[in-house]
Design a protein around this nucleic acid. Structure first.
Lengths: 323, 323
DNA sequence: CTTATTTAGGTCAGGATGTGTCCTCAATCG
DNA sequence: CGATTGAGGACACATCCTGACCTAAATAAG
């Protein structure tokens, strides 16, 4: 029984996080120490920078307030799972600009996530929402494997399906994981080809750390984001749409995430919308979902697709018995 | 300088969570203690149940492994934000079955989230994805306020817009927050009406804790979920759709989350899909997104809406210069 | 194989620290 | 006003923590 006091401090923190108000003597009973020690422990927490409020009088007690720094979070199993799942979706979101941080936090969490919880997260992850019309999806498992390898400078091996469909096995020294547009990219040094490459995460299969350490190289660019940008600027989406929306620009902008394209006002009641995607169905739906009238200028395939879709809807509606 | 050792233990844990491998003497430098003390601290962590692996020899060091219980998570600012945002989306998801836990974790986190971080989360939250055609959205801020009040047995005050559109101010003793279908409900004792009520979270405005404590009452049902179910079973969706899909049932089931309706096979190439929503546009899109041919049986409004949509799409496609 | 590096851990001495008991004060609620 | 609850000083005692020093074992590189 040596570090009872450190352990007790953590337990105390955990109790304070789990409920708002704790009378001192209840804490004393739980932790099996005298009330005086509890007061001293509270003082210790305060000195560590975690503000504990206290209320005197009957119905008084202690309460952990928000301070200026994050205290250690003490989570139970379910909460840890919820956080893991939440971070996975946040990492996948490609909306908020925190995807990379989410992955970093996920790496930190997964490193210490007990095995039985990891299994539960995995089970939930697969049951999780699969968008009906999906663009190629990034596997959050892959993200963490890759981010971990980046963080720890360990070589990675994976299969890769390049743009033209040919497959290959790669062995790389991963540099950074970058979220750009709605996609994830890995900037890495390809060991066989002896050169820098970027890989789209949704195109790679079964990434695994080889366990081999490497000494990080200097990326031939200002930073990873810049590098990825310059590597992919030549290869944007398969379809680039230009449409005129019959609605005010302001009305639309609030509803379209920036990464989904750009809105320019034309006049008070119309605006121009540019957006791209590899998948026509997805592209069409995105525009249709806006719920306003519009005209398609580019590309011809989109118009084609819309006509087909319209036909399908008309047929579906027409098949109803009542006119 | 008294509780240097507890503080140092936390710091050590934080370092070990932030990177994989740490040579002992680097830790010693960082924490400004001797190597012997580091070894002792590591031993302490192990005795607290946090498995620290060690590798001897050159290029050796310490490494925090996953154990059988969650260690305290030590997060930096950005990570805390990512987690908060992730939990918010997880709470809103209504897909995975972990929404309630996500809210609980969120409450725990928000209780200790420093003010400046809270502001950043708020900013991100508002910038966050707003679905183009949205059902009534639940404000995650409301969720945490309500969940906190439930946890701490504090009275709540809020405005409520009932089904028929009339508004009222309520003061309640919150009992539980329940996620059901795609919606959130609050089961609570209405103080003015002296009776139990359920409230749809997306219908209430500006919930705030009054600070008044109450002693929890017994809910007149097995549990909160049961209570909410029995209260709402009379009032499902505004529109209930029945359609026949021209695709195999298996193909569809994998792509439709259960709460979005039921699929029954009809024959090898067709199946019946039942789903409901308050919003026709949303309902229509959900079916259209499946990307298969279909026939609408119910309701007539849906057929109407589809025809209108089809017309819009045809016009949009036709307006292109090239045929 | 040898050597250098790194963790493991025993021992010791001296100072620092944690704990319970006892006490007085201050704040708050009914 | 009285009961309850936190704040915190004082003291004595046991415990613990730390750094210094030492030896052993594992491992990677030459």
């Amino acid at each position: 029984m040596s570090q009872t006091t450190s352990g007790r401090l953590l337990e105390l923190l955990s109790l304070l996080q789990g409920r708002r108000d704790w009378p001192g003597n209840e804490l004393a009973n739980r932790l099996e120490v005298s009330g005086r020690t509890i007061r001293r422990d509270i003082e210790r927490l305060r000195q560590l920078g975690y503000p504990v409020e206290s209320i005197t009088g009957p119905a008084g007690g202690y309460r952990l307030r928000a301070g200026s720094a994050m205290p250690p979070l003490l989570l139970d199993d379910d909460e840890a799972i919820a956080i893991a799942v939440g971070l996975r979706t946040a990492a996948r979101a490609s909306v908020t600009g925190i995807e990379e941080t989410a992955v970093r936090a996920l790496v930190k969490l997964e490193q210490v996530l007990p095995a039985h919880l990891r299994r539960r997260v995995g089970a939930l992850g697969s049951a999780t929402f699969t968008p009906p019309v999906e663009g190629p999806t990034v596997n959050p498992q892959h993200l963490t494997v890759i981010a971990t390898a980046c963080r720890d400078s360990e070589c990675l091996r994976f299969g890769y399906r390049s743009r033209d469909g040919t497959g290959s096995r790669r062995e790389v020294e991963p540099h950074s994981l970058v979220n750009h547009g709605r996609r994830w990219y890995l900037a890495a040094w390809d060991r066989r080809r002896q050169d820098w490459r970027t890989f789209r995460i949704d195109r790679l299969a079964a990434p695994a750390s080889t366990g081999v350490r490497f000494t990080p190289r200097q990326l031939p660019a200002k930073d990873a984001v810049a590098y990825v940008q310059q590597s992919i600027k030549t290869a944007p989406n398969r379809f680039e749409a230009v449409v005129t929306l019959h609605a005010a620009a302001e009305e639309i902008t609030s509803r379209v995430p920036v990464y989904w394209g750009t809105i320019e006002p034309v006049d008070e009641h119309t605006c121009r919308y540019r957006t791209g995607d590899d998948d026509l169905r997805w592209l069409a739906l995105r525009i249709a979902m806006l719920g306003v009238d519009f005209d398609v200028h580019e590309p011809p395939e989109l118009a084609e697709h819309l006509r087909a879709l319209a036909l399908r809807l008309t047929r579906a509606a027409g098949s109803q018995r009542r006119a």
